[in-house]
Design a protein around this nucleic acid. Sequence first.
DNA 1: TCAGTATAGGACTAAATATGTCGGAATTTC
DNA 2: GAAATTCCGACATATTTAGTCCTATACTGA
Lengths: 152, 152
Amino acid sequence: MLKLTKKADYGLIALKYLAERPETPALSAKDIADTYGIPAQLLAKILQQMTKKGILRSHAGMNGGYALARDPRVISAYEVILAIDGPFFITSCTKGARGCELTSNCTIKEPLARVNETIAGVLKSISIQDLAESEPPPAHGSGAAKLVSLAV
Amino acid sequence: MLKLTKKADYGLIALKYLAERPETPALSAKDIADTYGIPAQLLAKILQQMTKKGILRSHAGMNGGYALARDPRVISAYEVILAIDGPFFITSCTKGARGCELTSNCTIKEPLARVNETIAGVLKSISIQDLAESEPPPAHGSGAAKLVSLAV
DNA sequence: TCAGTATAGGACTAAATATGTCGGAATTTC
DNA sequence: GAAATTCCGACATATTTAGTCCTATACTGA
Ligand code: SF4
Ligand code: SF4
């Protein structure tokens, strides 16, 4: 419940890895997978999905691989999760077609939709750059503090 | 991914329903389940779990049922989710025993732990009372605005 | 005291989702 | 042309979620 999929997790790891190596022209899925012990074929698919969504650039052939398509500061965690796992909803109802049958008479749908927006906002406020920068565990509040407004 | 379980959903619905009827001494699981078309036995278990965690009071026998154990203002959505679905973690690693094998050399674990705390904070800031009050869809920002500090 | 109503809880099944694998085709470099 | 690599769909497996069944226990009121 309310858990990130490993695919999204893997995707974030890979992006962070790429963000930390801006000089390298490209890294193959296998390279990254081996570094972290992630199943190579699975990671390959994840990178492909991100490529389709414009987060990565890909290049086939020898010395090919993937590179960030944009500055890591303008790639949000939200965007990554969206690319890998599809639309982001904490409830089952908003999930397009076969949602929840209670949708019509459910009374907590609206409040939860706002919670959903808030969490999405949190995720949107985090960039790949933020992940890459937080290498040294900050003593206390060293990172940039962000304010998220929540209306319930 | 990052989706609330239906059990937590059902639990919140039931609590809201109870919060809106402070005068009634108790409502049975069946009553609530029938009102919303939720599987009765499933809801019963959910209510039992919340009773064990001290969110509800229960009473067997005729005219028995469940009632809020505390003021709805001091029951948070976080607490409810915790009672129903167990410890709240968006990542697999922090999940006690059989987590993720990457835990040792994973570089995004720490940042994600902070995201986890932020989301938990959002959930903690929402009370059952908030859910019950938001009945009339507010025009815009009618609800109490809350600020959540996020350090990445 | 007994019948009816309700909670309590274990064991189980079924459905859905997440995770990982296989096999092959297309692309690029050397 | 051979090796490295992305690309893509179909498949298989594992885990989680959702829901059911059955039985025991507790309380109420006639
Ligand atoms: S309709 Fe209500 S119960 Fe169904 S998924 Fe949406 S919020 Fe949850
Ligand atoms: S260790 Fe890293 S990859 Fe594994 S679950 Fe935690 S954050 Fe995700």
